[in-house]
């Protein structure tokens, strides 16, 4: 095999295989062509965004001056951030519990945890609308000052996000060799120390994947948010939904582009901050 001639490319070095690289190229191309179009069209002068008519920054100025659009974006980021934080913690705890303990009706409990994933979004949206209205939480929370008035939406997002985190983290934990834990305890570490120094680092890829999933779900959720939001708590997807039913305007493209840039920068920063720790543990 030609690959084996190159230094450092063993039989397991799939990352350097040509066919995989080509496959990656094709899949990423498919994933990104629509996105690139979107970004390109945010610089288009044509109002309907169907044909290319010329280059402009006007759409960004317009989006920036559209206070309701900006407000919706800030709401969305705020909700996604808090909901991801809570969901990741709750999800990881449940995953640890399911992985570590044997208890009666465990199968039933797992099915129960899976419910938010199984249920169509629209049912959950309507169920939550009923619930928030009937308990008076809708009126009470919507009247609170920002960001407390986002509580209902955050609560709803956590409820559907954390089981996803639990699933992802748990499928990571399945591969954990418990002898490591015992070894740590034998060496005199407390339960708490073992948890932080052994289990959490092992969980990390699962936590990152789970948090990314939760963030994605929260940021993109339209259906459930639609039913739980009020006039003061519009999120970006809800705003977009009401705007694009009559066609996407380049202004929306511009706002989306900004949102992508913000989230990418935030994620890269987070990864950078986390990186030294990671290598220290390795």
């Amino acid at each position: 095999m030609a690959e084996q001639m190159k230094p450092g490319s063993g039989p397991l070095d799939y990352g350097n295989r040509l066919w995989l690289k080509i496959l990656f190229g094709v899949i990423f191309f498919m994933l990104y062509v629509p996105i690139i179009t979107l970004v390109a069209f945010s610089f288009n002068t044509d109002r309907r965004g169907i044909v290319w008519r010329g280059f402009t920054f006007d759409n960004y100025v317009k989006a920036w001056n559209n206070s309701s659009l900006i407000e919706a974006m800030i709401n969305s980021l705020m909700i996604a951030f808090i909901a991801t934080l809570i969901a990741t913690v709750l999800g990881a705890m449940v995953a640890l519990m399911l992985w570590r303990f044997r208890f009666p009706f465990k199968g039933a409990y797992e099915a129960f945890m899976g419910l938010p994933i199984v249920i169509p979004e629209i049912c959950m949206g309507v169920a939550l609308l009923l619930f928030f209205n009937e308990t008076g939480m809708m009126t009470a929370v919507v009247a609170m000052p920002w960001p407390l008035n986002l509580s209902n939406i955050i609560i709803a997002h956590v409820a559907f996000c954390f089981p996803f985190v639990a699933i992802v983290v748990r499928s990571r934990l399945v591969g954990f060799n418990r002898q490591l834990e015992e070894a740590s305890k034998d060496l005199g570490a407390s339960e708490w120390q073992t948890f932080w120094k052994v289990i959490v680092p092992f969980m990390m890829p699962g936590l990152v994947a789970g948090a990314l999933l939760a963030f994605t779900l929260s940021l993109d959720d339209f259906v459930i948010t639609f039913f739980t939001s009020g006039p003061e708590t519009v999120t970006f997807p809800v705003k977009v939904y009401s705007l694009v039913r009559r066609g996407v305007s380049p202004e929306i493209n511009a706002a989306s582009t900004v949102l992508i840039v913000i989230t990418v920068v935030a994620t890269v920063l987070a990864m950078k901050l986390q990186a030294p720790q990671k290598s220290g543990k390795g």
Partner: peptide, 25 residues
Amino acid sequence: PLLLLLVVLPFWINLLIRTYALIAV
């Protein structure tokens, strides 16, 4: 991390906007 980010990135764009982008393509 970069590749992982590249996979997830498209999903931070609103589903509707993404679908409309697909339609344009």
